[in-house]
Write a protein that binds this DNA or RNA. Structure first.
Lengths: 336, 336
DNA sequence: TTGTATGCGTTATCAC
DNA sequence: GTGATAACGCATACAA
């Protein structure tokens, strides 16, 4: 038997469909007599009626769906964020439509088109390129958009980790261990996060009175272990630093690989610091010292911000605090 | 300006909306004159018209959305599966609506209700309890359902890893290293996967001519590192085996923790084998020997199966091959 | 308090 | 080959 509609309930309760709609709408309590309400509720329960979100969307022009755009769910930092988003949205009666861009601008544009065609009420975008026409366009059409880990301008809602503070803490930690030759392996230049963390690295180094040596800086082509390894191997071929700060934990894992492939030990020869505190980073070999960002919380806040935008609140920005998790991958400089 | 509708395109092209629909439908090529088609396509391009999936759903009664139900996206084994699903669905013009159950039967029931209210065309369910009324009901209503890692009966489409073969390979590997005292830490009894892997363990042990000692068997309350550690600590308090096979990799990570907390070394004192080959399992300390299941591929196949069901193919079942990844967490029994 | 009428965007089905 | 029409399920402004 097909799913019962509001019509079926109306027939069963001997009332008009509109009355069923009102009786079942908690916001309209008092506009229907208790007796009628009870009859309707009974009929609905008996038939197993669940209001069709689709019909509701059609009428209200609200789909209660949020498009969630991430670079790659396979990167362990994103699942906790997505869970935070999903839990918060579900509690509010919303659903998340998740899409992966693999950092491709073209793919992202397609996805946003598709998600728009599905009438998403808003977007949470955790995948931000520097030249993000598609996102700018979206914001300009008054669509609720929340950026994750990117502040665009004050008119756009966003939640981001305090990367500058994190980078300072990382550099200070390494300096306190005696390091002065500190490398940085960032991600793809096209992503805004890369620039933010790179700039944070530069100023943290300057604040510590250290020079940033150009030959100790490089960019992985993606935020993955493979590309991180390849990038750091290029650095090591030029000069071996005493420590490296990676653009994120996956790149840090790649740095582990690069060190191994050259017979260097971590942290005895080179200390490694990651970024994000992704799941399992504490179980790596060695356990990774990393700048912890509150992943689940970032997801929660992003969801809350997009719900706020939908409720016509002005766009807000949140900078969430980070903390350095000191583990086994960093140690004092060993004299040769 | 609001999103253009088919009406706007019709006006701009000087034709009827129905003609626009036909002209833009690749399946109906030839039913509209080339000249008209070109006029329509030009108007659509000029206005930036994208057919509204919502209106289409209303009319065709097909939402092109698939509900994807997983226990917890935070478990590293699921993101690759979900990516396989999502990539395949997107290529076919479908979208994935993802929901986490946290292994709660009640939550799963709610989610299925919600997803049904959103008119999902089908479901991929990777979260299967033994007593899964909600899923059985769903299947009975002729809704396309694909189970992941659970075979229910021959009438239900499913894709599962060949856990029996994997468990045999794990036991044989340990036996070849001289192990005879092999423990098993499974997951919650209520989940079907737990029973499957437990039974596979029993028969693999029998096939190797080994006794299964009841005091070396136990069940974690969840498939997490914390619960795995707690469960294995209980085993260790009774008797220390020379090896343990975990119900999945997160439990194996918990076993690492339990060994450490008792001052035992892996693999010198106790060898550990995991299940799933989740991301980063090769970067753990020590690198985890584990039964590898083709996660992305499982997702791809699950998506294909649900699309097949929607296309009215009969339900198919796929048993995907597994392979044992031998790494640092297993070694020969050391004589005391 | 309840019933009536309407429209959301699209496409299948008919009629021309 | 193209136009007209109806229908999908619901919520709301308006009428009774």
């Amino acid at each position: 038997m097909p799913k019962p509609t509001i019509q079926d309930v109306a027939r069963a309760a001997g009332v008009h469909p509109a009355t069923v709609s009102r009786a079942l709408n908690p916001a309209l309590v008092g506009r229907v007599t208790p007796a009628t309400t009870r009859r309707v509720e009974e009929a609905a329960a008996r038939l197993g009626y669940v209001p069709d979100e689709f019909g509701r969307t059609l009428r209200t022009r609200r789909s209660r769906m949020i498009g969630v755009v991430v670079p790659d769910l396979g990167n362990p930092v994103f699942p906790p964020i997505v869970r935070g988003i999903e839990d918060t949205l579900r509690t509010a009666g919303y659903a998340a439509l998740i899409a992966n861009t693999d950092d491709s601008a073209q793919r992202q544009e397609e996805l946003l088109r598709t998600l728009t065609a599905r009438r998403c009420d808003g977007f949470i975008i955790a995948s931000s390129r520097r030249d993000d026409r598609a996102v700018v366009d979206l914001v300009n059409t008054q669509t609720p958009v929340v950026l994750v880990n990117r502040l665009m301008d004050t008119a756009t809602a966003a939640v981001a980790s305090d990367d500058a503070a994190g980078m300072r803490a990382a550099v200070e930690h390494l300096v306190s261990l005696g390091h002065r030759e500190i490398a940085h392996v960032g991600g793809p230049e096209a992503l805004s996060m890369t620039g933010v963390r790179r700039a944070a690295f530069d100023s943290a180094m300057a604040a510590a009175g250290l020079e940033v040596s150009p030959e100790l800086i490089c960019a992985a082509r993606r935020y993955t272990a493979d590309e991180g390894q390849r990038a750091f191997e290029a650095v090591l071929a030029r000069r071996v630093p005493t420590a490296v700060i990676a653009g994120n934990d996956m790149i840090a894992v790649g740095c582990y690989g690069a060190l191994r492939s050259r017979g260097l030990r971590c942290p005895a020869d080179v200390s490694v610091v990651g970024f994000n505190n992704m799941p399992l980073s504490d179980f790596l070999d060695p356990a990774l010292t990393t700048v912890a960002i509150p992943q689940f919380d970032i997801g929660t806040q992003a969801a809350q911000l997009v719900l706020d935008l939908i409720a016509d609140h002005p766009p807000a920005q949140r900078l969430v605090p980070v903390s350095l998790m000191v583990r086994g991958s960093t140690g004092p400089v060993t004299c040769v």
